[in-house]
Design a protein around this nucleic acid. Structure first.
Lengths: 162, 162
DNA sequence: TCAATTAATATTGTGCACAATATAACGGTG
DNA sequence: CACCGTTATATTGTGCACAATATTAATTGA
């Protein structure tokens, strides 16, 4: 079973392994996130906002807010995905969307109290997921590192030449 | 940077690494598959059909065809995804959808000549992708194995108990 | 100052994913 | 045969993803 990279067998394709594993993990998250009223991409957005709030804990007034473009950079998502997603989260009062007064093009996203409070309920989620998984933590960390490396390589060797 | 599984940091989450890497790989495929007029999930369907055709090479008449339910099992997709996808591929004459005469519930999917011929043009795709990627093949195979293991574990420890 | 350019977000359209439900066909039992 | 539970696929509705385009605001430059 040598993989010279030219096989068209489904089972030989790393791309399919990635595709199927990703959906399986998302499916595992789904019922847990449903308790919080979040979809998986919405959860990722909240993770960024919660992180941001921690980083800005020193500031009292937190005047900045996170731009949609910054969210997009972190999550690798564009506005076609983020705009409606953020509107749904805003409808549920998890966050606010406000035009920046300094630059009217910019929309600043901020957690509401409700959104910030949700963090406590999300705290146990990563643990609960790994819990049901019979895999050594070191192996998961190794896998994560490999995936991050691959992502970095894919993003660095970007566009047209190949 | 210890990961006890309780971090809510985006960068610590294997789930995000999986999510982002999957989309990055899919994005890398997109322009190549566009040459064949296929989306990425459509490509996966074609992979299964091409494989099936190879396996049945001994049969001359190939009366069986692949059931939608079999496709779904292999790709881990349900009819809500597959039915419209297969209709689009049928419109483009890549495959045919026919009710089984023996069991009218079943829809049998078969490659057309055009669909079968596309295999030749797809042959080089895995190679072209890995080519632009500065990663040792062994590392990719190891990553694939890890992902397949994870998928298996996720599917075995299935539903409600946790 | 005002046209041109750039930047940030929004909108539109297509194609997945998936939950929930519907439809139709099979298979067995009385 | 009529009834019933099961199986296979289809349909509907919601929510991503992403390409392409539009909109509005800031910036630059004659």
């Amino acid at each position: 079973m040598v993989d010279n990279g030219d096989s068209l067998s489904l089972d030989d394709q790393i791309c399919f392994a990635l595709y199927a594993a990703n959906r399986a993990v998302t499916a595992r998250y789904r019922p847990i996130l449903e308790e919080l009223g979040l979809t998986y991409p919405q959860y990722l957005v909240m993770l960024v906002l919660w992180q941001e709030q921690c980083d800005n804990a020193a500031d009292i007034s937190n005047p900045e807010g996170l731009r949609i473009s910054d969210l997009g950079r972190r999550l690798r998502l564009d506005t076609g995905t983020l705009t409606p997603l953020l509107k749904r989260l805003a409808e549920r009062e998890m966050l606010t969307r406000e035009r920046s007064s300094r630059d009217e093009r910019v929309v600043e996203v901020r957690l509401t109290k409700k959104g910030a409070a949700l963090r406590a309920r999300a705290q146990g989620i990563p643990g609960r997921l790994l819990c049901g998984l019979d895999v050594q933590p070191e192996r998961l960390i190794a896998l994560r590192t490999e995936l991050q490396d691959m992502l970095r390589i894919l993003e660095e060797t970007g566009g047209s030449s190949g």
